[in-house]
């Protein structure tokens, strides 16, 4: 029984890692008032390029860098369209997803070696292996947290850092003000455009890192649509975590946990069909939304979305 719990925890964390990276990336983007629905495309591009680079060069560092640069390029396009050209953010984000999905699939058939007719499918490459932390990994049950790959350990550090930067530093204060009230931020001498560009791009890089974790660790290798809709799950997770990086972990654990339990239930031949299980995280997101609205209506707290989310800003607009 203990072993079962331990393995469920281990899989939960592993499944959740890519979600945490992407969720934190998107939280930073949305906190400045930019909605990026291009997540699915950016994760796929991160996953395919990371795997291709790992396969050809054997360098995991290089593959992460390339994956991040994919996020950089795609989110920079989104930033240019939404911030400079003031295009509709939903339309631009969806285009990025459509483009990224198609492009990743195309690259999956072109970046492979000649002997595999240039396909990436079915190949294996270097990957992130699990590294057991001495002593800590021997703790019963919780030891599962310390027998993970390096990106997961990175996640453990990223969550508190991302929270601290957003809520305790002056840059975090400034970026939050841009997403809440760009008019105020501007009048206070904060550059709305620069802030939005910066965090849309940084956010995009983290999203692609999430994609890279899929192809280099969670389900090593490249398969078409390796993300399985995780880009969309992340949109729900951002809401679930109420735009707070520290809470990104709960949502990620919830979705990751569902994955893990599903996996176990399938082995055990349980009667609950997978699609039903898959519904739960979304139901939980709806429940959170209802709860938040209710709390706000009680006048207790302001928790909701950044007030200027998906609203473009121009100084002389009346």
């Amino acid at each position: 029984m203990m072993l079962l719990v331990q393995s469920i925890i281990a899989i939960t964390i592993r499944a959740g890692t890519s979600l945490v990276y992407a969720t934190i990336g998107e939280i930073y983007t949305e906190r400045t008032g930019v909605l990026n629905l291009g997540l699915e495309g950016m994760m796929l591009m991160g996953a395919v390029t990371a795997f291709a680079v790992a396969y050809h060069t054997g360098s995991l560092v290089l593959s992460l860098l390339v994956a991040m640069s994919m996020g950089l390029v795609l989110s920079a396009i989104h930033a240019f369209l939404c911030i400079t050209m003031r295009a509709n953010q939903v339309v631009s984000g969806l285009s990025i997803t459509l483009f990224g999905t198609g492009m990743a699939s195309f690259l999956g058939q072109r970046l492979g070696p000649a002997e595999n007719s240039f396909y990436l499918v079915g190949l294996t490459s270097v990957r992130f292996n699990r590294i057991a932390v001495p002593f800590l990994s021997d703790i019963p049950i919780l030891g599962a947290l310390f027998n993970q790959d390096i990106m997961t350990y990175g996640m453990y550090i990223l969550i508190p850092l991302a929270w601290f930067y957003m809520f305790k530093t002056k840059h975090g204060l400034n970026l939050r003000s841009v997403g809440e009230s760009p008019h105020t931020a501007d009048a206070m001498g904060i550059s709305v455009t620069k802030t939005r560009y910066l965090f849309t791009i940084v956010g995009g890089m983290f999203v692609s890192l999430g994609g890279a974790h899929l192809s280099l660790s969670y389900t090593p290798g490249w398969t078409e649509n390796i993300t399985g809709g995780r880009g969309w799950i992340v949109i729900a997770l951002v809401i679930f975590s109420m735009w707070n990086p520290a809470r990104a972990i709960y949502g990620a654990l919830l979705f990751g946990g569902i994955n893990a339990i599903q996996f176990r239930l399938q082995i055990a031949g349980a009667a609950i069909p997978a699609p039903v299980l898959n519904m739960f995280p979304y139901l939980a997101t709806i429940a959170v939304l209802v709860l938040v609205t209710w709390l706000e209506s009680k006048g207790k707290k302001r928790l909701g979305a950044p007030a200027a989310l998906a609203v473009s800003y121009m100084r002389e607009d009346k």
Binding site: K170, N174, R176, E180, T184, A185, M188, G189
Partner: peptide, 29 residues
């Protein structure tokens, strides 16, 4: 300038609004 429509971030505290965007604010205020 005190604008007609106040330039304040509603979800932040008075103190946060007062120092918002200040150049020589500490990294960790």
């Amino acid at each position: 300038m005190v604008h007609q429509n106040f330039k304040l971030v509603e979800t932040m505290t008075v103190a946060e609004n007062v120092v918002l965007g200040l150049k020589h604010l500490d990294f960790i205020p």
